[in-house]
Design a protein around this nucleic acid. Structure first.
Lengths: 196, 196
DNA sequence: CGAAGGTTTGAACAGGTTCAACAGGCGTGG
DNA sequence: CCACGCCTGTTGAACCTGTTCAAACCTTCG
């Protein structure tokens, strides 16, 4: 998998790959952050997820990307030709097994997301989102790389609802805000009980 | 994969396996229908999907089932020991690749479900559900094996909303009902435009 | 045949959306 | 380096979709 890898830079809001394009490469986020999203026939956008350094994208598709990938901020990616990976998966049992494990993990994450969109109220969704960011960044002080629109489209809500709930959390001292994107989570337990 | 397979029968509402149980077997639906579901900490139930003859369940988990599987009606399943499959996946490149393809397909389905729960209105969700049933049964005359509660928990709605929308579709002649579970889809195009 | 559970329907309610106006921060250019 | 302008985010109020609560109606299964 390391063979043939090369680095690539993308600027803020730049498209890494588009929905429907042939899946030629797999990418690993080195620095920065990426969002995956897709549009329904009415043009409504769903954000599938956010990807931080260490995360892999582009492998979940078989021939064609079912999401578009966009840089949330300037970022650096390692790029792997997909053909080589497929070939490896087809001949090397370890590669194929690794690919299965990867897809299986992605499926697990998607199922969690499904539970959030299917059964949680707005407050629970936002709390779950913040907890997820805390867990992934490994600290209580967050600099969110994504906008309110991105969060809303990820949680199946509107920007107004997300914004209101951020404000509500700040009033209840569960979080502190300094600017819209700098969030300190003061009380993880509090959020956990809100996330249900 | 065929080696070591055996058949098993389950009665209506019987549990095939439970959430959290070690994933010892993989099952293929031979006859009848199955639902996969899981519960959130508050006890709210999400139905992950419905499985009809030919469908495979239990393979998407690594060690422990993340869903429980229950028989919607009396049904017959082919059972494969999971250990053998894992072993095959670990040693046989074709088996591992097949498992990857299977998981990848499941992931694609889950992403579609995600779009429905994240971005569709109630009418669109019910229309999408009916269209999916038409596509899978291969005919316009459906006998739904699942209750309104199951449909509601699958679509992230309440039984009342589902029931009302079925009635609405009947009034608009898009479908005909004879009993709650016998649905004839009269106008697929109509539903498609409603599903957005 | 009768009881129990599932379904339909109605009416009131509420959470989240929509529409609208304002505030604030950030980047850009002077 | 500051000021301006735009874009993002916040807040408010009215509205609407879907929920909740409640009652009647099947229907199906023992």
């Amino acid at each position: 998998m390391e063979a043939g890898a090369f680095g690539m830079h993308f600027k803020r809001e730049e498209e890494i790959y588009g929905e429907g394009e042939p899946a030629e490469y797999v990418y690993k986020v080195i620095s920065g952050a990426v969002r995956l999203c897709s549009f329904d026939p009415e043009g409504r956008r769903l954000v599938e997820g956010f990807y931080l350094p260490g995360d892999l994208i582009g492998f979940e598709d078989e021939k064609v990307h079912r999401f578009s990938a966009e840089a949330l901020c300037d970022c650096e990616l390692a790029v792997y030709p997909r053909a080589a990976m497929e070939r490896a998966a087809f001949t090397d049992k370890n590669a194929a097994f690794a690919l299965y494990m990867l897809t299986s993990k992605k499926l697990r994450q998607t199922n969690d997301h499904l539970m959030v969109l299917g059964k949680k109220r707005a407050v629970e969704r936002v709390a779950a989102f913040l907890l997820q960011m805390v867990a992934r960044s490994g600290g209580d002080v967050l600099h969110l790389p994504m906008s309110r629109v991105d969060i809303a489209d990820y949680l199946g809500l509107t920007i107004e609802t997300v914004s209101r709930i951020f404000s509500m959390f700040e009033r209840s001292r569960a979080i502190s805000l300094s600017g819209a994107r700098n969030v300190t989570v003061n009380n993880v337990g509090n959020l956990q009980s809100l996330a249900a």
